[in-house]
Computed example of a mutant assay.
Amino acid sequence: MPELPELDPIIHGKLRLALLSLLSSVNEAEFSWLRQKTGSTDGNLGAHLLKLEEAGYVAVKKRFIARKPVTHYRMTERGRTALVGYVQALRQLLGDALES
C-alpha cells in the first residue's frame, strides 16, 4: 500500500480551509466580510483566524476608521504555499476518485 500523504492539521479544519480559500482570491479581507461569507460567529471566526496567524498563514492589519476598529487579513506566502500543498496532498489522497 502506498504511503498516504499527510494533510496539514492547521488547514484541515472546515472553517480554516474556507478562510484560506476566501483569502486566496483577494488581496485582503475585512473581518466582517469573512464573517458574512462563512456565516461564523465573531468568537469562532476570531479563534480560527488567530490559529492561522500563529501558523504564519495569514497576516493581520488593525486600524481605526472614524474611531471604529477595523481588522484586515491577508494570506501570506507561507499560507499560499501551505494551501497549495494541502490541495496537492488531498488530490493524491483521493487519487482516481477525482476522475469519476
Rank of each mutant, 00 (worst) to 15 (best):
P69V: 00
G85T: 01
K62C: 05
A97I: 15
L98H: 10
F64M: 07
Q36P: 01
Q92D: 05
A82I: 07
Y57W: 05
L50H: 13
L93F: 12
K68H: 12
L94P: 12
K62F: 03
Y86G: 02
H48S: 10
Q88L: 00
L90G: 00
A89Q: 01
F31I: 07
G13H: 14
D42H: 12
M1V: 10
S21I: 00
G56I: 07
G95H: 03
A55G: 12
A29R: 10
L52M: 11
E99S: 12
L7N: 02
T81E: 14
L34E: 03
R74T: 08
Q88M: 01
G95F: 02
V87Y: 15
T81D: 07
G46D: 06
G95V: 02
I10D: 06
A82W: 01
E53Q: 13
G56N: 07
T41I: 11
L45F: 04
I65T: 11
T71G: 02
W33E: 10
D42A: 09
G43K: 14
P9Q: 08
V70H: 13
W33D: 08
R74C: 13
M75C: 07
K62Y: 00
K37P: 04
R78I: 06
D42T: 13
K37S: 09
A89T: 10
R67I: 00
Y73S: 03
S32R: 12
E77W: 02
T81F: 06
D42S: 13
G43H: 15
Q36M: 02
A66P: 05
I11K: 03
M1E: 10
E53M: 12
G46R: 15
N44Y: 06
V87F: 08
G85I: 06
R91F: 02
A47S: 10
G79S: 13
G95Y: 00
K51S: 09
A47T: 13
V26P: 06
V84Q: 08
S32F: 12
R67Y: 02
N27W: 02
G95C: 03
S100G: 11
G46M: 03
R91L: 05
A66S: 12
N27I: 04
A66V: 11
Q88E: 01
L34W: 04
V87H: 12
P9L: 07
H12A: 15
A97F: 10
S21E: 07
N27R: 11
A97Q: 14
L45N: 05
Y57R: 04
E53V: 08
R16I: 04
L23R: 15
V60G: 07
F64R: 14
S21W: 02
A97N: 15
H72F: 15
V84H: 03
L17F: 09
S32I: 14
A18S: 08
V87S: 10
H72C: 10
E77Q: 15
S100D: 11
R63E: 13
D96Q: 14
I11P: 05
A97W: 09
G39Q: 04
G39W: 01
V58K: 07
K51C: 05
L94K: 12
G13R: 05
L22G: 03
H12N: 15
T38M: 03
E54V: 15
L50F: 11
R74W: 03
I10L: 10
S25C: 03
L34S: 05
L7A: 00
D42N: 09
R16D: 04
K51W: 01
P69N: 06
A29Q: 13
Y73I: 04
S21D: 07
I10A: 04
L19R: 05
